[in-house]
Amino acid sequence: MGHEITILIGTMTGTAELVSDDVRDVLEAAGYRVVIEPMDDLTESIFSRGSTFLICTSTYGQGDVPDNAQAFFSSLQDARPDLSHVQYGLIALGDRTYKATYCGGGRRFDALLSELGATRLGEPLMHDAGSGTLPEDVAVDWVKRWADTWLAREVEVA
């Protein structure tokens, strides 16, 4: 059985969910098992379900996490669980016209998870809504390389 990856979605308009749906299809075709979890009602306990996570989140307002992720984000800040068993990849959606707060939602998750001991696998994908590319297209290409680079070896070992 392939490696299991849990995708956690932070979204306002549903774009991050659409991206996650496409990412899941690619990962499943490559033999991974994928579970998608919108962040709406999540707590720290989600991190006990496995070791490999993909955070896929947009950004809202002044570089904040989207509405559906706020409770989850604060609960992690408050509970400060030990996430040293967790490894994660990051897909951050943003818009460069916001300048300083570009992809802020993803950056916040990145900083918090690192602080809590989790290990990020590879560089994050940051997508600019104004780039003329579609985030799902870019993410699908990115996640293939990401999984090949960081997860394939483990699957072979396992």
Binding site: G14, T15, A129, L134, E136
Partner: peptide
């Protein structure tokens, strides 16, 4: 770019 939501 705000109109890209039509993809969904």
């Amino acid at each position: 770019s705000t109109k890209n939501v039509t993809r969904q």
